[in-house]
Structure formats: C-alpha cells, structure tokens
Design a protein around this nucleic acid. Structure first.
Length: 1027
RNA sequence: GGGUCGUUAGCUCAGUUGGUAGAGCGUCUCGUUUACACCGAGAAUGUCGGGGGUUCGAGUCCCUCACGACCCACCA
C-alpha cells in the first residue's frame, strides 16, 4: 500500500461516516460490553437553523464523551433531535412569505401551519447534515423533534417519540396540580411578533433617551406653597404653585395615568395629597383628573419626587396601582400602536373621570375596554404619539421650563436668558425583544403562567446536595441566584407555531338561548383542561349537564383578548338548525406554549415518557448535559424544575457548562458583525478533525474561546504529522505481517527505547482518561498532542531509524511490533477527538476485526508499564542529543557536518547510557566519533550533560569570545537558580516545615546544578587560558 | 445598583490540593538526514496588572486599588 503524503479529508470523511452508519456503530448500546450506561442529550438546535461555531464546539465535546464511553464498553446513547423553536421558526416562514409580499394573516392558521411544517421538512436535514460533517456519532434512528406528533406532523422524524403528547400531558398534569394558572398580568409584549414573551427573552440595552418634565395642574386651579429645603432644613425655594411637576421618559403613557404618587414622608407635597390633578394632554374639554396619592415607591431625591402611575404600561407602576387600587388603562394594541377601538375619547374620559372621583368602579374586563387615547392620536405608532403628546403639552405651556444654559439639557450651552423646555438628555435602559429587536412594551393581557416558585425547590436542592453537579463550580452561583428569586413564568405565546394550549373555554353558565344566539369571547371564561377535545368535552358535559359539546375552531388571525375578530368567529354560529338545543359550545385557547416549556421536557420526552420505555429505564437520568452558559436559565434550570415536577427525578448527573465561541478579537460571533466563522467552511478547508481538535484544545473551563484559523491549520498539521508517522511505519514494514490486530494486549519489549515508549504510552493513556473524566478536554488534547508529536514522532521514530538499520533482526522486529502497538494506541486514544483520520489509518494499516469506533479502550497502568531505568536512560540520551545540537546551533556548526566529539568526563550512569545508545545519539546529534580524553583541547566548545562533560573541538571555526559569552550566560542562569535553591536549603525553617520529599528534591536538584556549575566554571577557566 | 469572571512571553491562552512559569502561533538563525516544508534543528522574549498581607516558600491563598469583559436589575 502506498499512502498519499497527506490525508484527503474531503474524500474520506463522507465515506467513513457512511461506513459507521452502515455498520450501525452509533446505535444506542452499540459496542456495549458492560451494564453501565452513558447517555447524553443533544441540546436541540432550532429545526430551521444552521449550525454555528457554538454548536460545533458543543457537539464536538458531546461526541468525544460519547465515543470515549462507547469504546470503553458503556451502553451508550447520544440522543439527537431538533427544537421547533416557536418564534424563530415562525419568523423564518414569515420572512419567506414577505418575499412574495404575503403575510401570515393572509392565511388561515391551519394553512399557515402547513407552510411551517413544509419549511420544517425542508430544513430538517440541514442540521443533521451539518452534524454529520462534524462527525457527530448520534443515534439517528432515535432523532427526535419537540413537536413530533403534533397536529400536521408529517411524521418524518425517525425517532418514535410523540413529544406533543408528552408536552400536553405535562401541561394538563401541572394544571390539575395547580402549578399552572391563567390571569391578567402585566407582561413583556413584543409588538413585532404580537405576542407575550418571558422576562428572559427581553434584553435590556442602554440607549440615548430623554426625560421630559411636565406640569400636572391642580384641579380647579387650586394652589399650594411649594417649599424645598436643603439637608440642614434651610429653605432654598418657596413659591406658590398651581401644579405638580412630573418627569417621564415616556410621555405617551401619560394618557393612561391613573394617579400621581409621592412618598408619604415627602413634605413638599403633603398639602396636596388626596387632591386631584389634571393630565396635561388630551382635548381641553375632557381633561382627565387623577388623584395624588402616597406610596412607598417614589424616591423623593429623584426628579421632582412625584411619579405618574400608569399601571398598564410600566412594571413599577403596575405594583403601585395594584396596591392603591388605581385603574390600569391599556393604551396600545398588539402592534404597539395607540388603540383605535372602543368608544370615542369623550365617553372613555367620562368613565375615567367618574372612576377618579370615586363615583364608579371598573372590573378588570370592563377597564380593558376603556380606550383613553384621544381621537386625534388613535392608531398612531407609539413613538409618533410620543412626539405629538410632547408637542401638545409644550404648545400649551405646560412643560417645565429652564434656561438654555442648563447643563441637564445635554446639548451645547445656550443663552442664559433664553427659556426652553426642560428636556434632559439621558441614557436610559430600554427593553428589546431578543429576536425581534423592537422595543418591548409592558402590556396588560391574559396569559398562562407556571407558578415556578412551587416547583423550584427540588431544582435548588438537587444541586445543593450534589445530586446534580454543575461544572465549572462558579456557574452554580448563577444558577442559584436565578432560581432563588424565581418569578412566575409566562408560558403562553400568541403565535401559531407551537403546542396549542390544551384548554377549552365554555360560558359562565349554560342557557339554550345563549347557545343559539352565539357567544362572545367575554362569555367564554370557564376553562376545561384536558389532553383532547373529547376529554375536555366530557368535563364540560358534566359541568353543564348537557348531552353534546360543540367545538368552535378559530380560523384567521387569533389574539385572545384583543379584537373583534375572535369575537365574530365565535358568534358566527355554524350550528345547524336541526340540532337540538341540548349542547354547549367550547372554544380552544388559541395560544401556544413557550418553546422552552417543551424543550424543558427534552430529557423525558426524547426517551419516550410517559410510556415506561426501556430507554427511560436505561438512560434516565442522563449522564451529562453539555451546554453553553447562555441557556442556563432558559433551559437548564427549567429542565431541572420540570423533570422534578413531572417524574420526581433529576434529569442529569452532571451539567458541563462551556464557554462561548468568539472571534479572534474576542467579539461574540454574530451575523450583524459579519465575523461569523461557519464551521462547515472550516471543515471544508481543514477537515473536521482539525476543527474538532482545535475546539477541544481550547475548551478550558469557564472562559471565552477565541478561534483563529491559524490555530486550526496548526492542528490540521498535527493530523498530517500523524499520517506521516504511519507512512514511515508502513515504509519500514511495521504493518507488513499484521492481521486482525488492535488488541489491548501490551506488547512485550526488551530494548530500552521500546520499553521507554511503552511506558510513555501508558502515561498518556492515564492522562487522557483522567482529563476526560474531569471534563478537562483541553488537557486530553494537549497531552495527546505532546505525546504524538513530541515523543513518538520527534524521538521514538527517529530512534527507530538506527534500530531498523542496525542489522540486528531481533531488535528490528521488536521495534516494529512495538511501533505497531504504539501507533495503534495513538489511534485509539485520539479517536474520540479526531475520529476520521484515525479510523482511516486504522483501516489502512491492517485488517481489523472491528472498526476503530468500536475498538477496545485500553486500561493499562503507567505503574505497570513504566520502566524507571529505561526512562532515566532515555532521558539522558535525549538530554545528550539536545546538548550537542544546542552547541552546534549556537556555534554555527554546519548541519551537514558530522563532528568528532571528545568525552572529557562522564559518570557511570552516563557511561552506561552512552554505550547502550551510542548509535542513536551519534545519528541524531550527527556525531562522527567520540574520543575519551582527560582535558579538552584549546579551541573547543564545552557541552555539559547530566553527569558529564563533552567537548566539541572547533579549532578553526570557534569564536572564543562567543563561546565565553555562551558559557557565561549559562552560568549566570545557573547561578540564579542555584541561589534560590541554596537560599531555601540554608533556611532552617524550610528544612523543618517543608515536606520531606520537597526538601529531598531540592537537595538533589541543587547537587545537580552544582555539578554543572563546576563543569561550566572549569570550561571557562580553560577558555581563559587560551585567551 | 447587585453579581461573576478576567489581567501570565509580540499574539492567543494553559498552569487541579501553595514548591519557584509553560504550549501553540509569530519572530530570528540554520537546514534536506529512511515519514512529514502542513517539515526538522537551534535561539530570543516574562519584575505572572499595581500595592499590601499570610507563609520557610505565592502566578496559585487573603485584603486593596486600577483596568477590562459578561450576567442580572423597575429608578419615574
């Protein structure tokens, strides 16, 4: 067999992967030879997504662990699959539609979902194909999908899991246990996607904003004396005012104000607490009045100390409003535009005024129908409305004024005599949707929540008591911090793509007339939660005492609590005339569940729960979860909570949290920055093994991971190095008579060189196992790199050359056998990290009983295989060669020139090492001959080795000054080291308190250094004689 | 505002219980020897961010300062 000079990754990878699949090498339990199991769940990528470097990293680590355990004979499962990713996927489809000027709402819900399923089908293969390119050894027969089994599923996911049923079942179960509830709450609303989102999906960012200061006039022109005092109680300002000053960054929300709040202790406003003031915007004839109340929330030191309260559009205000019974008026629609529904402003203002005066009370639903947006602002975008509101107030002279040189204005200082509205330029934190990137609006809507507080306990305890381990440790704190202050989790989304909530609503009470006449959405308030309509209908039948239940499907756009559309669908009675009156109508909640609710069930859902499957019994709880820190809250914490809540068990033994992949400059890779490295491009260029090895070698825990192509090229070279080591072995007949080898049996060797490399192999095997066992992937990679390149290639292969050429057949044969074994071990140990090139070499070098992927992982011990005398001998040989090479290099001895060496002095150990290995040394150091002498001649360069001195006669070429400088430099370095050693040894406290072995080690080292110092000094003295 | 982490060779980073600092890349010099120029041989470079402390001994532990990164957070 003639091997190519390099490994053709592009050609080989696909072929090898196909061979593994063909052989069923990835199947759960493949190659299992013991009862222990090892299971790992892939963090499911978005089904319509593409793999990025983070995925490449994450999956490389999983594959390493999987392959490692599989080779060790564990019953191994790597469970693959994808996530339906509600918003993200719906976004992809909507973007596609936009290309042809169509929108989601041009379709019925069912039609649209059909499009999404098609999209899902088209892109499903992408992720899998990409993972295959990386070499991921997932059990594809079990490939799962978080919406498998949902209505519309074409059933093209190979795994048999019905994820949808599992999700629905969990919802119903949690609902019945009171862990899930519905209610009107202030939630984060994404006006672009027109859905609620959870706290976690909001990203706060600092932006340039403004703070406006407005006057809220007191009702009926009332006045009061406004007094400001300094810290000592001295009056600094006293004036008559007919207004209260309010600061706001969001003037458009003034329209929904329900009150103005001040601190109970704030003396400035004490005279007017309880009075009414006027919102300075809206038609003059219908100016709304709101009460001035006290609440602990306002900070007297900030702004004017008075805060406007808009319960429906601000989270703080919401709390204040709840405490104070202040009405919360919703101002915007689902798109974030000012409401354009309901009665004209005049009517709405009338109602609000009555409420403010305490003449009327509003129920929650009723309050939501009151649209307090003035007619001229209705339908405007919220930011446009803000502009108009500011203009109107300012135009009316109700802005707080200041001089143009006021530094708070932020701009260029203006004329001190000129008066301008006080609009502070200010950095403000603004919430953005993590996917839509639009400004999030707090909105008062009906949503479903998981009462997370009730299920968080076991998730905290599980980590506290070590039942589940989180690595690195510091990430535990992040986990705890979040869980200990857990908030209700909003799980309903006003999307179409997702698991529809299994709740049907019926009317408050049953009446035949109502059924005939039709129902409005407000009438449908009694929930029936069940896995199917039939089961919900059964509940309703009993509840209402009727014999039949009719389900109404919503068709077009659906937004539960917003518009008339839904209402009309429900009232558009399709009930046939001949139907009896003995029925009740139910309508299903149109909302779907947060994607993370279903991915939170990934562990049990993929393993076939609620069935008591073999997979559940064997592989649950799973062994380890490998994931990035960015989804600790989104996913890890929720899986912990959910698994405990549903099956009462932890989902995994260990959570390994890895770093984020960044670009060379440390920037997060993102499409907008254009610094994204596509893993597939890199695989194309360098091969999957190189990419994998790079990621592995940089996987130090808990840091960022900066990726550069240079580094990948370096590890590609490493593969080539290994490849060429095999070429060398091949050429030397190492594999000539090998059939069906690859056994873990360690070869027996007699020769020092072979004994030595066997010991080194045992060492690296231990290092690799220890490192992988501790999730120190980089340690494993680096140990292998140093071993293969630095030991096997740099030394062992070089040593073998003279041995093969020696003519001693026994030694040559033994070396061949040893080399075959050592190289096999390299393949075995490297395989988890570099599966392709190793499998290729495995097949190319001999006929094998099994593919490398199923080869046996060795367990030989360094303690058994390291031969100390062989080791110290080889150490001396290497030191000797290096010393000669170093002097040659520094003295500019031509590389091609074979030199004659003089042995000035040498101890017995050196003598023995020399005599047994002279052939190796002479070859590698390019020494022609060695002559024993008592004293070095003049004009020789000195070479010191442990236990001896050599001289290199260079009469003609030696530069005495240069040699002197070289020796002095070495001496200087040595003296410094010796100084430290002697200092320590001279310190009685060190002798007393340091451990015995440390003291002993120091003594030995000092002795060696002293001996070398003597040699160098001798050499210098001789040089002085010459000069 | 709260929290976490980081600051080590020109660059990117290792450095597990404290024992006296390493790798890869880059740079410089030399080079074709039974695999490999995606190679080989050799060389240079660090007051381990500053200061203080504990210790016989600190890159490693403690305090403090500076700078940087990230996460969380409702100041109108």
């Amino acid at each position: 067999m003639a091997m190519d000079k390099t490994f053709d990754a592009a050609e080989a990878e696909a072929r090898l992967y196909a061979a593994w699949v063909e052989a069923g090498a990835f199947k759960a339990g493949a190659n299992a030879s013991r009862a222990e199991t090892f299971s790992v769940l892939i963090p499911p990528p978005n089904v319509t997504g593409a793999l990025h470097m983070g995925h490449a990293f994450n999956n490389t680590l999983q594959d390493i662990l999987t392959r490692w355990h599989r080779m060790r004979g564990f019953d191994t499962l790597w469970q693959p699959g994808t996530d339906h990713a509600g918003i993200a996927t719906q976004m992809v489809v909507e973007r596609e539609l936009a290309k042809t000027n169509r929108r989601r709402t041009d379709f019925s819900r069912d039609e649209f979902l059909e499009l999404v399923w098609e999209q899902k089908k088209r892109s499903r293969g992408n992720i899998r194909g990409q993972l295959e390119r990386l070499g991921a050894s997932c059990d594809w027969d079990r490939e799962a999908f978080t919406m498998a089994g949902a209505p519309g599923d074409p059933g093209d996911t190979p795994g048999g899991q019905n994820f949808h049923d599992a999700v629905i079942r969990v919802f119903v179960d949690m609902y019945e246990k009171g862990l899930i509830y519905r209610g009107k709450r202030l939630v984060n609303w994404d006006p672009h996607f027109e859905t609620a989102i959870s706290d976690l999906e909001v990203e706060n960012a600092e932006v340039d904003g403004h703070m406006w200061h407005f006057k809220y006039p007191l009702a009926g022109g009332a006045t009061y004396t406004y007094v400001e005092k300094d810290a000592d109680g001295n009056v600094t300002l006293e004036e008559e005012r007919d207004y209260i000053s309010i600061a706001t960054t969001r003037p458009e929300t003034m329209l929904g104000d329900g009150a103005v709040a001040v601190q109970p202790s704030d003396e400035r406003y004490a005279p007017i607490v309880g009075q009414l003031c006027e919102i300075p915007v809206g038609p003059k004839e219908h100016r709304r009045l709101i009460p001035i109340i006290t609440d602990p929330y306002p900070d007297p030191e900030f702004g004017s100390g008075a805060v406007k309260i808009t319960g429906a559009h601000d989270f703080n205000d919401y709390e204040v409003a709840k405490r104070g019974g202040i009405p919360m008026y919703r101002l915007m629609d689902t798109k974030g535009a000012m409401r354009d529904d309901g009665a004209p402003y005049a009517e709405a203002a009338e109602i609000a005024l009555a409420v403010a005066r305490g003449e009327r009370e509003l129920g929650e639903a009723e309050c939501d129908t009151v649209n307090l947006v003035p007619d001229d602002l209705r339908g405007l975008d919220r930011f446009e409305a803000r502009k108009r509101v500011v203009e109107q107030i300012t135009g009316e002279g109700l802005a707080v004024m200041t001089t143009a040189d006021d530094p708070r204005l932020g701009g260029k200082p203006g004329d001190a005599d000129q008066t301008v509205p006080l609009v502070e330029a200010k950095k403000i934190m603004q919430p953005f949707g993590d996917r839509s990137k639009v400004v999030i609006e707090p909105m008062l809507t009906d949503q479903w929540f998981v009462d997370a507080e009730k299920i968080v306990g076991p998730a905290i305890e599980g980590v506290e008591n070590g039942s589940t381990r989180i690595l690195p440790e510091q990430d535990k704190k992040v986990y705890f911090n979040w869980l200990r202050e857990i908030e209700p989790w909003c799980i309903s989304r006003q999307l179409w793509w997702g698991h529809q909530i299994p709740v049907w609503y019926g009317p408050e009470s049953y009446s035949k007339e109502l059924m005939r006449k039709g129902l409005s959405s407000d009438d449908l308030t009694v929930p029936f939660c069940a896995p199917t309509f039939e089961q919900a209908a059964e509940l309703a039948r009993k509840h209402y005492g009727v014999s039949e239940v009719v389900e109404y499907f919503e068709n077009g756009a659906a937004f539960w609590n917003s518009d008339d559309e839904y209402h009309s669908r429900l009232t558009r009675s399709d009930v046939p005339d001949d139907r009896s009156d003995d029925f009740v109508m139910l309508a299903r909640d149109p909302d779907v569940l947060d994607t993370w609710f279903s991915s939170g069930l990934w562990p049990i859902g993929t393993l076939g729960w609620p069935e008591d499957t073999e997979a559940m019994q064997k592989y649950f709880p799973t062994s380890v979860l490998i994931t990035g820190f960015d989804i600790i809250f989104f996913w890890v914490a929720r899986m912990m909570m959910m698994q405990y809540a549903v099956v009462g068990q932890k989902p995994f033994d260990t959570v390994y949290v890895h770093a984020l992949v960044r670009d060379e400059k440390g920037k997060k890779m993102s499409k907008s920055l254009g610094n994204v490295l596509d893993p597939l491009d890199l695989v194309d260029e360098f091969g999957a093994d190189a990419v994998r090895f790079t990621l592995t070698s940089m996987a130090a825990m808990g840091r960022d991971l900066k990726l550069s192509t240079q580094r990948i090229a370096g590890y590609r070279n490493f593969g080539t190095k290994l490849w060429n080591a095999f070429r060398f072995a091949e050429m030397n007949g190492v594999f000539a008579d090998r059939r069906c080898t690859g056994s873990v049996q360690v070869v027996y060797a007699d020769h020092t060189v072979n004994k030595w490399i066997i010991g080194e192999t045992a060492r690296v095997r231990e290092e690799v196992d220890t490192a992988l066992g501790a999730y120190r992937f980089n340690d494993a990679a680096n140990a292998l790199y140093a071993f293969v390149w630095g030991k096997v290639c740099d030394w062992y292969l070089e040593f073998s050359k003279p041995l093969f050429a020696s003519g001693d057949k026994a030694v040559a044969d033994e070396t061949r056998a040893t080399m075959a074994w050592v190289l096999d071990q390299c393949l075995v140990l490297l395989h988890p990290i570099m599966p392709f090139i190793t499998e290729e070499l495995w097949g190319a070098s001999a006929e094998r009983a099994k593919m490398l992927i199923h080869a046996d992982w060795p367990d030989y011990q360094a303690a058994d295989l390291v031969d100390e005398s062989a080791e110290s001998e080889m150490r001396w040989v290497i030191a000797m060669i290096e010393a000669v090479r170093s002097v040659r290099g520094e003295m500019n001895v031509p590389a091609a020139l074979k030199v004659d060496l003089l042995q000035v002095e040498l101890d017995a150990a050196g003598e023995a090492a020399w005599s047994r290995n002279s052939a190796l040394i002479q070859r590698l150091a390019r020494i022609e001959s060695v002559t024993v002498t008592d004293a070095a001649p003049k004009g020789a360069a000195t070479i010191t080795v442990p236990g001896g001195t050599y001289a290199l006669p260079l009469a003609d070429i030696i530069d005495v000054t240069a040699e002197k400088a070289r020796l002095e430099k070495s001496l200087q370095k040595l003296s410094k080291e010796l100084g430290g050693l002697r200092g320590r040894l001279g310190n009685p406290k060190f002798i007393d308190s340091a451990p015995e072995d440390v003291v002993e080690e120091t003594r030995t080292l000092a002795a060696e250094k002293e001996a070398e110092e003597v040699r160098l000094k001798t050499a210098l003295a001789r040089l002085a004689e010459v000069a």
